[in-house]
Amino acid sequence: MIVFDLKCGQGHVFEAWFGSSRAFEEQRAGGLVQCPMCGDPAIEKAVMAPNVAAKGNRKADAPAARLDSTPAAEALPSPDAIKAALQVLAQAQAKALETSQWVGKSFAKRARAMHAGEEAEAPIHGQATLEQAKQLIDDGVPVAPLPFPVVPPQARN
């Protein structure tokens, strides 16, 4: 697995895991990578600082001074705490998807049919355009975006 910092066209920066650089490029080209904050599919790799360990025979340098040392900035969680929380969230999503059926691009149609009582209710997940999702919400259909992209079953290797 490889971790990338990604940035959408709206400037949101987020982290995502991929099997390889090629997997990232293929998923992005297929429209499977979207900003978890705004849904923007215009995703690029963000600049990342390498994590280089200190040599074994040297003391680690003192931590760099913070650019913003206000009390509010000090109350922010550490990057490690954020990564740990995202990992727990990713595991929770994976567990929830174990009992959910992938319905692909028919998600909006199926969710609407379940809401109208035309189809038995069941946990489903799939793809919907931003416009379809907004319309479902406006119509009172209970839907929510998943925090992490889902690879369709037919695209898994």
Score class of each variant (00 low, 15 high):
M1E: 05
M1S: 11
I2G: 01
F4E: 06
Q10R: 13
Q10F: 10
G11V: 02
H12Y: 06
V13M: 00
F14M: 03
E15C: 05
A16R: 01
W17P: 03
G19A: 14
A23L: 00
F24T: 03
F24K: 00
Q27G: 09
R28S: 06
A29Y: 01
G31L: 02
G31K: 01
L32S: 03
V33L: 01
C35Y: 02
C35H: 06
M37T: 04
C38R: 01
G39N: 05
A46F: 08
P50E: 11
A53G: 00
A53V: 10
A54L: 12
A54E: 10
G56L: 13
K59C: 01
D61V: 09
D61T: 12
D61P: 03
A62P: 01
A64L: 08
R66T: 11
L67V: 12
P71E: 11
A72I: 09
A72C: 07
A73W: 15
E74D: 06
A75Y: 03
L76Y: 11
L76T: 09
P77Y: 12
S78C: 13
A81D: 06
I82V: 09
A84Q: 13
L86N: 08
Q87R: 12
Q87W: 10
L89C: 12
A90M: 04
A92V: 04
Q93K: 07
A94F: 03
A94V: 05
K95R: 14
K95A: 14
E98R: 15
E98A: 08
T99S: 13
A108F: 13
R110I: 15
A111T: 01
A111M: 01
M114V: 07
M114Q: 14
M114T: 02
A116T: 12
G117P: 04
E119G: 02
P123Y: 09
P123I: 09
Q127L: 07
A128N: 07
T129C: 08
L130Q: 09
Q135D: 14
D138M: 06
D139P: 05
D139N: 10
V141C: 09
P142K: 13
P142H: 10
V143S: 11
V143R: 13
A144C: 08
A144E: 12
L146V: 01
P147F: 03
F148I: 14
P153Q: 01
Q154C: 14
A155Y: 07
R156Y: 08
